Amino acid sequence: MPGITREEVAHLGRLARLELSGEELDHFAGQLDDIIGAVARVSEVAGEDVPPTSHPLPLTNVMRQDTVRPSLTAQQALSGAPAQEQQRFKVPQILGEEA
C-alpha cells in the first residue's frame, strides 16, 4: 500500500485551513499512514459471518415505568424561592440577553 505523501497532507492542511511546516508535513504523513494501516487491518478482521453490532453485549432498557405520582404544587415549590415571577423561579440574568 503506498504511503501518504507530503502533497496529500499539504492538500488536507489547505482544506482544513492549516498552515503546516515541512517538518509537520512529514510527521503527519507518517501518522496518517499508520491510521490508514490500522483501519485496513480492522477491515480484514470483519467477516460476513459476524453480524454488525452497536455494543459487544446485549442491552435491555433498564428504565422504570413512567407513572404519575403526587408532587408539590407550584405554590409549595416556590414557597422557599428568594424571587418568583408568573409562578416560576426568577433568577439573575447571566448571558446579557434582552428580556
Results as ranks from 00 to 15, higher is better:
44 E>H: 12
7 E>P: 13
96 G>K: 04
41 R>L: 14
93 Q>P: 12
91 V>G: 13
45 V>A: 06
9 V>M: 00
41 R>G: 14
36 I>R: 04
53 T>N: 09
95 L>I: 05
99 A>L: 04
51 P>H: 03
72 L>C: 09
42 V>N: 03
29 A>F: 12
51 P>F: 05
48 E>A: 12
19 E>F: 13
76 Q>N: 00
99 A>F: 00
15 L>G: 01
12 L>M: 09
62 V>Q: 06
75 Q>K: 14
96 G>T: 00
86 Q>S: 07
98 E>P: 14
68 V>H: 10
12 L>E: 02
34 D>Y: 14
8 E>F: 11
80 G>D: 03
2 P>I: 03
17 R>A: 14
93 Q>W: 13
31 Q>M: 12
54 S>Q: 10
48 E>L: 12
43 S>G: 11
81 A>Q: 01
40 A>H: 06
79 S>I: 05
34 D>G: 12
65 Q>D: 08
51 P>W: 04
48 E>I: 11
31 Q>N: 09
8 E>Q: 11
42 V>A: 10
57 L>Y: 08
35 I>A: 12
92 P>D: 02
1 M>H: 08
54 S>W: 15
28 F>C: 00
50 V>F: 09
5 T>G: 07
51 P>N: 01
66 D>G: 10
90 K>I: 01
90 K>Y: 08
89 F>H: 08
35 I>T: 00
37 G>Q: 05
35 I>M: 11
46 A>R: 00
99 A>G: 04
54 S>C: 14
26 D>Q: 09
71 S>Y: 12
8 E>W: 11
36 I>C: 13
11 H>R: 06
34 D>A: 15
17 R>H: 11
55 H>E: 07
93 Q>A: 11
12 L>H: 07
81 A>C: 00
18 L>Y: 13
90 K>P: 13
90 K>E: 02
18 L>C: 12
37 G>D: 06
95 L>V: 04
39 V>L: 15
68 V>S: 08
15 L>H: 02
51 P>E: 03
67 T>H: 10
56 P>Q: 04
91 V>S: 12
25 L>Q: 05
3 G>R: 14
56 P>N: 04
20 L>T: 01
82 P>W: 03
88 R>S: 10
75 Q>H: 14
81 A>F: 00
19 E>W: 11
47 G>Y: 04
30 G>E: 02
27 H>P: 07
16 A>Y: 07
20 L>D: 04
4 I>A: 02
12 L>Y: 10
77 A>G: 00
94 I>S: 08
23 E>I: 03
12 L>I: 03
86 Q>W: 05
43 S>N: 10
81 A>W: 00
56 P>W: 07
49 D>P: 15
59 L>A: 09
29 A>S: 08
62 V>P: 13
99 A>M: 00
81 A>V: 01
37 G>L: 09
2 P>L: 02
15 L>E: 01
82 P>L: 04
85 E>N: 00
42 V>P: 09
70 P>F: 02
84 Q>A: 09
60 T>F: 15
94 I>H: 10
49 D>F: 15
4 I>Q: 05
